[in-house]
Each structure stands twice: as C-alpha cells, then as structure tokens.
C-alpha cells in the first residue's frame, strides 16, 4: 500500500543545498509530485520515505540517527546526490562519515536495523531523476543504474 501514497521527509545531513533545491523543484507546481501521491511531511513520525541529502557530517550524524529511528516501519531511504551516495568529494574527509554505506556500518554497530536504500547519484541530480526514484517505488519505472565501486590506483 505504501506504493500508492508516499510521504517523504526531507533530511539534510550537511549538504550544500544543491540537492535540496532540486527536491523543492520536484514538489513545486512544475513537476508536482502530488500526482503520484507524494506528500512532504514535517515530522519523521509521519514519513514513509526519508530523502537523505549531504555527506553525513559528524555534527549531524547523531540527529540523522534520531530522525531515522523515529520513523515508523516500513520505511525506506532515498540517498540523493553524490555526497549521500558515496561521500562525494568528501569521501575521505575527517569531518564527514562519508556516504550512506559508512553510515549504515555505524547504524549496524549501534544495533539499529538500517532501512532499504535507493541511490540517486548526480551533483545535483535532476528533478526527473528524483521523480524516477519515487516512480520506482510505485513500480512505474525500472532501475537505471548498476552498482560499481571505483578503486583508486
């Protein structure tokens, strides 16, 4: 049933606001995500899908964990932008956790079951890409990207 009505909670974990402006673009009249039953809610307690932007800085990590544990099951995370997907240009910075995979490692260490994640790469991703991720939930669209890990030589 979550496919028919997706309520999203916007969680910025220290991003540069580029992805956040694209999210606003998805919700405002031109793209109008309400067509698909998507609604922006203010409280993580009401959310089904958490839109996570930013590389998860050490300052914001505790708050991000609080927000994610506050959301009721079943819940999903959409990692939006290069930073959230893999740390971006801050992947080895001391000030950030470095992307959602490293963040999930910390979550597992703390005994929190991490929700399923969908990646939307791009810096920033186009609003159409974010809509594609939301349509993927509804089974309206199929996956477009494959996982590939870059190794520095």
């Amino acid at each position: 049933m979550i496919k028919k009505s997706i309520w999203i909670y916007h969680l910025n974990t220290g991003g540069c606001n580029g992805c956040d402006i694209e999210i606003i673009d998805v919700l405002t009249p031109f793209h109008d995500a309400e067509r698909l039953g998507v609604k922006l809610v203010g409280s993580p307690r009401h959310a089904d899908v958490i839109l996570l932007t930013g590389p998860i800085t050490r300052q914001s990590m505790e708050k991000a964990i609080n927000a994610i544990t506050a959301a009721p099951d079943p819940k999903f995370i959409v990692a939006i932008g290069s930073c959230a997907c893999g740390g971006g240009i801050w992947y080895d910075s001391y000030a950030t956790v470095g992307g959602i995979e490293a963040f999930y490692k910390i979550l597992r260490e703390r005994g929190v079951k991490p929700p399923k994640v969908i990646y939307v790469p791009g810096c920033p991703p186009r609003p159409e890409a974010i809509l594609h991720a939301l349509a993927y939930f509804k089974g309206l669209a199929s996956k477009k990207i494959k996982k590939r890990v870059f190794v520095e030589k």
Partner: peptide, 20 residues
C-alpha cells in the same frame, strides 16, 4: 496553484485519501 493534484490513484486520483 496551477498543479494537477492526485492523479494516478483511482480515476483522477479519487482514491488518494483512502489510500493514505
């Protein structure tokens, strides 16, 4: 507001509140 409103749930989105 020059938007469409709920469209895809039921005909014209009429089942959207029920789906919620």
């Amino acid at each position: 507001q020059n938007r469409m409103g709920p469209t895809y749930t039921g005909s014209g989105g009429i089942l959207q509140p029920f789906a919620d």
